[in-house]
Write a protein that binds this DNA or RNA. Structure first.
Lengths: 210, 210
DNA sequence: AATTTATTTAATCATTTGATTAAAATATCT
DNA sequence: AGATATTTTAATCAAATGATTAAATAAATT
């Protein structure tokens, strides 16, 4: 077999090239609109090779999707479970990390949300995001804050929805936002950088926290 | 020709049946994943008939998309331009109307946002949402509030992004939200109803308004 | 070097899918 | 009713697309 593992820094292995191309195409156009031929071309290889390595379009897609979600979950689970930080600090780093990630991969959320609508069951249960979030130190701190009266009593989900909404929506709706504000990519990114500071402040004042 | 216009209340005309089916399928699965045969079946008619009425899949799609967006814009433009209401009142009714609309058509935003990513130019410029929003009484009131120091100085877009994010995101991410919160459809809707009251309050305290 | 194994390609298949056509059925009009 | 126009259908086409195959090339192993 070819040296897939050793060849990490130099030229990426063919398998890796295909996966990268697939990630780009799938996140850009979605599963249904992506052609295996386009992936092959983007990867600079032949169509048959794609099926040789990954057996089918669907298998390749599942892999890309799984890795994307796992990467995402792993990137935030560290923050969520840091027992040495306050709720406020967690929110600040969470927002900051999240925005940095989305600035690098702005198409990711729309891709994930779209595909999740069509294959709801499998992935969600497979990744068990629910358990990871609910058992996190972060979630406990929210409930604690409610019990202690530091936060007005409400369903913790509202809290989650608000944070996620304020972080994710601008990226999901970036064409509209850019249009309304006459923004090019760099001034859009500038706004997103501002939000790293602003969103935590808004959250705190929303929750009478701080 | 058949009586298309007269037949409004009773049995919908064939044209209308096709459009309704198309709306359902397109908003559910997106353009690329929707098969014209599926639309025909859903409408209870023959495939050829679809092309007879609408010439092509793309033409049908463009029509559905245009009508959806126009309907949406029209539904909020009344609120945005009501010169007799305060900024706070506008926000309350805007949030309420919006949530009611999304409760009836929960797939609409993901559909619009997904397709907007792939055909960004045409629709956005065609509908001229930008001008309608910027010239609205609502937008003027925001800027006014900033000038008068009632709201901390910031790019008005942040304001827009926050409201839209808090309203829209829960619907776009409903599979995740339902999973995290162990919610069925009706308890999800209940949460959304709560947000009709909560979101305006959050906005006000975020903005030091009220 | 010879042999085996892994990688890559060009050509082709089979199915799906958007669209068309020609004819049948239905409605409309005189 | 008979003629005309409209609506609907079954059958079919052509292109797109996911997948396979058999053969060529390159790499690894003995």
């Amino acid at each position: 077999m070819k040296s897939k593992e050793s060849n990490t820094t130099l030229d990426p292995s063919t398998e890796e090239k295909i996966k990268n191309a697939a990630r780009v195409m799938f996140t850009q156009k979605g599963y249904a609109a992506t052609r295996t031929r386009d992936i092959a071309q983007e990867a600079g290889i032949n169509l048959a090779l794609l099926n040789y390595y990954f057996r089918s379009k669907e298998k390749l897609f599942d892999l890309i999707m799984l890795e994307s979600m796992q990467g995402f979950i792993q990137s935030i689970s560290g923050v969520l479970n840091d027992e040495g930080t306050s709720l406020q600090e967690k929110i600040r780093t969470l927002v900051s990390n999240y925005i940095d990630m989305l600035t690098l991969q702005p198409n990711l959320p729309l891709f994930v949300l779209s595909e999740l609508r069509n294959h709801p069951h499998e992935l969600i249960s497979k990744l068990d995001f629910k358990e990871k979030l609910i058992r996190s130190h972060f979630f406990v701190q929210i409930q604690q804050a409610i019990i202690e009266g530091k936060i007005p009593p409400m369903h913790p989900l509202h809290f989650i929805m608000n944070i996620m909404g304020m972080i994710i929506f601008p990226f999901v709706g970036s064409p509209i936002i850019k249009n309304i504000g006459n923004l090019d990519q760099s001034s859009f990114n500038e706004l997103m950088q501002q939000r790293k500071i602003l969103i935590p402040e808004w959250i705190f004042s929303m929750m009478n926290l701080k």
